[in-house]
Design a protein around this nucleic acid. Structure first.
Length: 816
RNA sequence: GGGCAAGUGGUGGAAUGGCAUACACGAAGGAUUUAAAAUCCUUUGGCCGUAAGGCCGUGAGGGUUCAACUCCCUCCUUGCCCACCA
C-alpha cells in the first residue's frame, strides 16, 4: 500500500500548529540554539531557491531540537522594497495590499513544507511596529554623528521625473520609457560605516565558521591597502597634485599623470590651461555618464591631455604630461593616479591609445629581459629594479619598502593606508520604505523627530504613478508638519530608507518581537544571540552581512548587546539549476514547488533537495530524482507498515548481528553528517540501512527486536529530513509523543567495533589482494600473512622485495 | 581585468594521502501479473579475454610520496562574486 503523503502532511501540519510544538521560550534547563535563515522578500511565491534554503535550515533546527537543545527558529518577511511599488503601479493597487497578499501566500507554502517555525515570532518589516525601530536606530546614529547628509548623484530619468536604481538603467536609458538617463545631484543621508572599518576587518578573524570565500569577499570589499601618497609639483604654478599608489616600486616608470574629471585642479588652474574648451567638454561628457558606464570594461580608453601645465616626478625631476580620463574615479584614493604603462595593464592600454612614453623599471628574473618597444602587455609581476636610480638591482618588494621610507624621510611622499569601503548611502526617493525621521525647519535647520513621536508613519493608500518624483512629496498631510523645537511650520524628509536597513538587525527583533519600549529586550537578546547557524544565499556575502555586522557593532557601542559579531556560523547554499542553467523567471525554466508538493508530498521534495547535492554547491533539478526520493520514502513506509502490527520476537542474545552493528554505524554516520551539513551522505547511509533491513526481512524472515530497533532508528534519524511521514510512522510504531521532540539516538562504540578487519595488500601501491585478520594484529603477523597470501606469492615470484609498509588495520604495501 | 570555487561512469554525486565510482537515477535482464503499472531481485566505468584474469582510467602535462581524485607547479575549461579600486 503506497503512502498517502497528502493526508499525512495535513494531519501533522495541523498537529504541530495546534500543539505549538516549535514554540520556544528562554529557559536555563537546556542550552539555546538560534537557527536562522535569511528571511524572504515577499515576491509572490516561494521558488526552489527558498525551498532549498529553508529545508536546510529546518533540518538543522529539527536535529537540534531532538538533541535536546532549546531551539529558536523564527521567520519573517523583508517586506519593503521596489518590486511592491512597481507591482502597485502596474496593477493599480496599494503596495501594502500587494505585499500582505504575497506574505499570506508564502506563509501558507511554508506551512505546506512543514517548516518548524515559531510562528508567534513572525515579523513583517513594513509593519510600523517594526520600522519604528529603524527610525529609532537611525536617530541614535544621528545623535552620534554617524548619520549625516551630503550631496550625491542619482540616476535620473527626466521624462518620468524620478530616480532610478542601477538595475533600472538599461544601456543608458530608463527601463520604462527608454529616455536617456541623467546624473542628478541630491542631498542624501549616509551612514558612517567607515567609522567601523577597522573592526569590520579585524573581527573577520573571529568568524572561524564562515566560508573562506565570504571572508575574502568582505576583505576585498573593505579593501585596506598600504601605499604611499606622492606629491607631484606642477612646474608652471607650484601647486601640488597628490597621488596614491600601492606600487611605489614602479615610481621611476611613471610617465604621465591621470586625474579624475571631478578633480579640483582643473578649476583652480583654469587660466593656465591652453586647451580649456576641450578639457571642459570632456569633463562635461564624463559627468553625464553613469558610474556603471564609466567603469564598463568595454569602454575605450578615452581621455584628454591638459595642455599648458606639466607635472614633475619628484624622484627624478622628470617633466611629465597631465591627462584627464573618466576611468579615474574621484571616490578612490586621491582622484589622481601616476601612470606606469609598463607595469599596469590599464595604463598600458591608455598609453598605447594616446602614444605616451614607456619605461621599464622592473625586469623579471629567469627570462629574457623586456624591452619597451616589444612590450605587448604590461608586466605586473615581481623582478629586479632597473632605471630606478639608487634602487637599481633591488628586488622590487624590497624596493617598495626602501622607496617608501626614503620618500617619507625626504618629504616627497607619505606612507598611508587607504580603504576601499565608502559610507553607506541610505536615502531612496521611493514610497515603499521606512520614512526618514527628520524634519527641516527654516529656523532650526535639520531637526530629528523626538523619540516620543515615533513612528513616523508611512501614509497609506496614496497614489503611486512612478512619475513626478517621490510619491511622498505630494502627500501634503505628511510633508507639512511643525518643528519639534520651535513649533514653526516645517517640512518632513520625503525620502525613505534603503531596505538593507531592515535586514541589518531583524535577527535581534526575533528575540522579542512584541517588545515596545526598545528595538528588542536586552535580556532576551542576551539569552538567544548570537545566531548559532545562519543560512542563506551567496549573493548576500558582502552587503547584507557587512551591514548586519556594522549594526551589531553600533548596538554594542550603545550597550544594547554584549557581543560584536551577530552570526557565529554561516552556510551559503548553492543555486538551483534546471538543464544546467539557473532556475529563473526570465529563463522560463521555473518549477513551482507547490506542484511537486501536490504530486509527491512535502517530504519527497525535502528529501530530494537534500539528497541531490551537497548544500554549498549548485543543485540540478531533476524530475526523475524526485521520483527516486519518493520511492525511497515509500520503501521506508512499506517496511514500517509490515512490521508495525506484528509481535516482536526475541533476538538471539549471544552475538552481535550484522544488522545491529549496521544500525549503530548508521547512527554514528548520520549524526556526524548532520553536524557537518552533509545531508546527501546522511540520506545515502539511511538508504543503506533500509536496504540491509529489507535483506534481513526477506532472507531470514526476521521480525525480532533487532529488526524493530533498526526500523525505529531509521524513523528517528529520518525525522528531521522527512518529518511528516516520520511522525506518522513513529505513531504506528507505538511512539506516544511526537517524534519531532523524541530523543536523538546514540550509538554504542562497542557495538560498532568488529573483531576482524579487511586488510588490503598492495604491490607497488596497486591493490593485489585482501585478507581478513584480527583487529589490532601486530605488524609482524600482518606482514607474514600478507607474504603468505596465495595471490601475492604468485605476484612476487622471485622478485626482490625492497620495502614493506604496514598501516595498522588498513593495508600492507610491498615495494619491489 | 581581479578574486574565489569546481572539473570523477550515460546522469546527480561518494571517497581523515591508503580498495576510485558508496548511495541514487537511467539502462539491460529476471520474478510477480491475463497484461501493464507498482513492487522485489540481479547486472551495469572502458578495453582485451569463453573464462580465470589482465591492462587502462578521477580535465591535460609535470612533480612530491611506499602510495595522489586528494598535496605542489604549469596549463585548459566551466561557474560564481567583484570590477578601469591605483
Amino acid at each position: 500500500m503506497a503512502c498517502d503523503f497528502k493526508t499525512i502532511d495535513e494531519k501533522w501540519q495541523k498537529f504541530w500548529q495546534e500543539n505549538n510544538t516549535f514554540r520556544s521560550l528562554p529557559s536555563s534547563a537546556h542550552p539555546k540554539f538560534y537557527c536562522l535563515e535569511m528571511f524572504p522578500y515577499p515576491s509572490g511565491k516561494l521558488h526552489m531557491g527558498h525551498v532549498r534554503n529553508y529545508t536546510i535550515a529546518d533540518v538543522v533546527a529539527r536535529f537540534k531540537w531532538m538533541q535536546g537543545l532549546n531551539v529558536i527558529h523564527p521567520i519573517g518577511f523583508d517586506a519593503f522594497g521596489q518590486p511592491a511599488e512597481n507591482a502597485a503601479i502596474k496593477n493599480k493597487t496599494d503596495p501594502a495590499a500587494w505585499t500582505y497578499k504575497c506574505i499570506d501566500w508564502m506563509r501558507q507554502e511554508m506551512r505546506r513544507l512543514g517548516f518548524s517555525y515559531d510562528w508567534q515570532r513572525e515579523i513583517v518589516t513594513c509593519d510600523a511596529n517594526y520600522y519604528k525601530w529603524n527610525q529609532w536606530i537611525f536617530l541614535k546614529m544621528f545623535e552620534r554623528g554617524l548619520a549625516y547628509r551630503k550631496p550625491a548623484t542619482v540616476n535620473w530619468c527626466p521624462s518620468c521625473a524620478t530616480t532610478l536604481a542601477n538595475e533600472e538603467v538599461v544601456s543608458g536609458g530608463c527601463w520604462r520609457c527608454k529616455a536617456q538617463v541623467e546624473q542628478k545631484e541630491l542631498e542624501q543621508w549616509f551612514l558612517k560605516i567607515t567609522d567601523y572599518k577597522e573592526a569590520l576587518l579585524d573581527d573577520l578573524k573571529l568568524l572561524n565558521n564562515w566560508p573562506a570565500r565570504v571572508i575574502s569577499m568582505q576583505e576585498n570589499w573593505i579593501g585596506k591597502s598600504q601605499g604611499v601618497e606622492i606629491y607631484f609639483k606642477i612646474k608652471e604654478t607650484g601647486e601640488t597634485i597628490n597621488v596614491f599608489t600601492t606600487r611605489v616600486d614602479t615610481i621611476f616608470g611613471a610617465t604621465y599623470i591621470v586625474l579624475a574629471p571631478e578633480h579640483s585642479i582643473t578649476v583652480k588652474l583654469k587660466d593656465k590651461i591652453s586647451n580649456l574648451k576641450e578639457v571642459e567638454l570632456y569633463i562635461k561628457k564624463a559627468k553625464q555618464k553613469s558610474r556603471t558606464e564609466r567603469v564598463d570594461a568595454a569602454q575605450t580608453k578615452s581621455g584628454v591631455q591638459i595642455k599648458g601645465i606639466t607635472a614633475i616626478n619628484p624622484v627624478n625631476n622628470e617633466q611629465i604630461t597631465i591627462w584627464i580620463a573618466d576611468y579615474c574615479l574621484m571616490e578612490y584614493g586621491t582622484g589622481a593616479i601616476m601612470a606606469v604603462p609598463t607595469h599596469d595593464q590599464r595604463d598600458f592600454l591608455f598609453a598605447k591609445e594616446h602614444n605616451l612614453p614607456l619605461r621599464i623599471v622592473i625586469q623579471p628574473q629567469n627570462q629574457e629581459p623586456l624591452s619597451e618597444h616589444q612590450l605587448s602587455e604590461a608586466y605586473e609581476g615581481d623582478g629586479i629594479q632597473v632605471n630606478s636610480g639608487q634602487f637599481d638591482g633591488l628586488d622590487n618588494n624590497q624596493a617598495k619598502v626602501r622607496i617608501a621610507d626614503w620618500m617619507q624621510s625626504t618629504g616627497i611622499g607619505k606612507i598611508q593606508t587607504h580603504w576601499r569601503l565608502r559610507d553607506w548611502l541610505i536615502s531612496r526617493q521611493r514610497y515603499w520604505g521606512t520614512p526618514i525621521p527628520i524634519i527641516y525647519c527654516d529656523r532650526c535647520g535639520v531637526v530629528p523627530v523626538p523619540d516620543d513621536d515615533l513612528p513616523v508613519k508611512l501614509p497609506e493608500k496614496i497614489k503611486i504613478s512612478g512619475e513626478q518624483g517621490s510619491p511622498l512629496t505630494k502627500v501634503k498631510e505628511f510633508v507639512n508638519t511643525k518643528c519639534p523645537k520651535c513649533n514653526a511650520k516645517a517640512l518632513r524628509d520625503t525620502d525613505t530608507m534603503a531596505t538593507f536597513i531592515d535586514s541589518s538587525w531583524y535577527f535581534l527583533r526575533f528575540c522579542s518581537p512584541d517588545f515596545d519600549s526598545a528595538p528588542f529586550k536586552k535580556e532576551d537578546a542576551k539569552y538567544w544571540m548570537p545566531v548559532d547557524q545562519y543560512i542563506g544565499g551567496i549573493e548576500h556575502a558582502i552587503l547584507h552581512l557587512l551591514y548586519a555586522r556594522f549594526f551589531t557593532k553600533f548596538l554594542k557601542d550603545l550597550k544594547l548587546v554584549d557581543f560584536s559579531e551577530p552570526f557565529n556560523r554561516l552556510l551559503t547554499q548553492g543555486m538551483v539549476l534546471k538543464d544546467g542553467i539557473v532556475m529563473s523567471k526570465s529563463k522560463g525554466n521555473v518549477i513551482d514547488p507547490d506542484s511537486v508538493i501536490n504530486e509527491y508530498g512535502a517530504d519527497t521534495l525535502r528529501t530530494f533537495i537534500l539528497f541531490a547535492a551537497p548544500p554549498e554547491v549548485e543543485l540540478e533539478y531533476s524530475q526523475r530524482a524526485i521520483e527516486g526520493s519518493w520511492k525511497f520514502l515509500n520503501r521506508v513506509w512499506t517496511l514500517v507498515s509490515q512490521i508495525s502490527g506484528t509481535v516482536v520476537e526475541k533476538s538471539e542474545k549471544d552475538k552481535i548481528s550484522a544488522l545491529l552493528r549496521k544500525t549503530h554505524q548508521t547512527i554514528k554516520k548520520v549524526t556526524s553528517d548532520l553536524e557537518n551539513f552533509k545531508f546527501n551522505t546522511a540520506i545515502s547511509s539511511l538508504m543503506e540501512l533500509v536496504n540491509a533491513i529489507y535483506q534481513e526481512v526477506a532472507d531470514n524472515k526476521r521480525k525480532d527486536a533487532e529488526v524493530f530497533l533498526a526500523v525505529k532508528t531509521v524513523v528517528l534519524l529520518l525525522a528531521p529530513i522527512a518529518p511528516h511521514i516520520c511522525e506518522e510512522m513513529w505513531q504506528m510504531l507505538g511512539g506516544k509523543s511526537p517524534v519531532s521532540k523524541a530523543i536523538w539516538p546514540t550509538f554504542d562504540e562497542n557495538l560498532i567495533r568488529t573483531e576482524t578487519v579487511a586488510i588490503i595488500i598492495q604491490i607497488n601501491g596497486k591493490l593485489r589482494s585482501k585478507i581478513d585478520i584480527e583487529v589490532d594484529s601486530p605488524e609482524e603477523r600482518v606482514r607474514e600473512l600478507a607474504l603468505n597470501d596465495e595471490k601475492i606469492k604468485n605476484w612476487l615470484g622471485a622478485k626482490q622485495i625492497k620495502n614493506i609498509i604496514v598501516v595498522k588495520d588498513k593495508l600492507v604495501n610491498i615495494v619491489i
